[in-house]
């Protein structure tokens, strides 16, 4: 009995630490396959503006700018929609509507990105092309809209938690001063929920930056260099889409292969920074042990 207890406790402890092992393994294999790129491709080439692997041109800057354009545009769309929806669900909606909205947002989170990409090709891009009178509908904007749909559910749920965490006494104090509910939301609740809302934004950015399929399917996949605001309605190519679409065709251990892993390292580091800093923004929850033996 005692031995089996100890065995179980030890197994659980090992399993508990497995996440550390996995994150290290991920890092290790990215570095192992990606770092050689720095030796094989000159620094000047790697940070140039031309991504054209067939001619050994491995400039990753257009890919980074492509990712940033798509991500930032998507956040500009997703942020007001997500936070607005969270305000509605958390502060305004009657209980019945809330009970419909919450599962709907959850369903939204569950829709695979490849499905959104498909709809992007079938409906969104053609619509944008005629609506904005563009040569092609496969643009950063199409990608950003789809990414917004993907980022919104996480923004809504985190923002809602942040609003929920604002003590009701704040609201009561505001009402007692004669403020309307609307004034209370803007003047008291939102400022108090600031750090939670920041977390929502950061994680939204993280989701968008790492998203692959939807972006790959609708952004046209042209590694164009950054062209100011106009980039938004031009085809772009993101880091994720580059890896996804080219890894299948490269020989392993080729230069191209190593560069793709190198892009993976960049993505990985971006995601680490975003996630770790946003989780430190969020407060920790601790279990109330409570008194049993009084």
């Amino acid at each position: 009995m005692k031995r089996s207890e100890r065995f179980i406790a030890n197994s659980i402890k090992i399993a508990g630490s497995s996440s550390i092992l996995f994150i290290l393994l991920i890092f290790f294999f990215l570095v192992k396959e990606g770092l050689p790129a720095l030796g094989e491709v000159s620094f000047k080439n790697l940070f140039s503006l031309r991504w054209y692997p067939i001619e050994e041109l491995f400039g990753i800057l257009p890919l980074i700018s492509g990712s940033l354009v798509v991500t930032l545009t998507s956040i500009l769309i997703a942020l007001p929609l997500g936070v607005g929806t969270a305000i509605y669900i958390g502060e305004i909606a009657p209980k019945k509507i809330k009970e419909i909205l919450k599962p709907t947002v959850e369903i939204m989170a569950g829709i695979p990105s490849v499905v959104l990409g498909f709809i992007g090709i079938q409906a969104l891009s053609p619509f944008l092309r005629t609506f904005l009178n563009l040569p092609t509908g496969l643009t950063a904007l199409s990608g950003a809209i789809l990414l917004a749909l993907i980022a919104i559910p996480s923004i809504v749920s985190i923002a809602e938690d942040a609003l929920y965490a604002v003590p009701n006494s704040y609201r009561d104090a505001s009402y007692a001063l004669g403020a309307t509910q609307w004034q209370t939301i803007w003047g008291v609740v939102m400022p108090s929920a600031r750090s939670g809302l920041m977390t929502a934004v950061m994680l939204g950015i993280g989701r968008s930056l790492g998203e692959t399929m939807a972006v790959m399917m609708v952004t046209g996949n042209a590694a164009t260099s950054f062209a100011g605001l106009k980039s938004i309605i031009m085809p772009v190519r993101t880091m994720t889409a580059t890896i996804a679409s080219e890894m299948g065709e490269v020989a392993s251990s080729s230069v191209h292969y190593h560069v793709l892993f190198f892009i993976g390292i960049i993505l990985f580091i971006f995601s680490l920074i975003i996630n770790i800093s946003s989780s430190s923004l969020q407060g920790k929850t601790k279990q109330e042990k409570g008194q049993v033996v009084s």
Partner: peptide, 8 residues
């Protein structure tokens, strides 16, 4: 781990 992009 939760934040690592799927393609990574």
């Amino acid at each position: 781990l939760a934040g690592v992009p799927s393609v990574v």
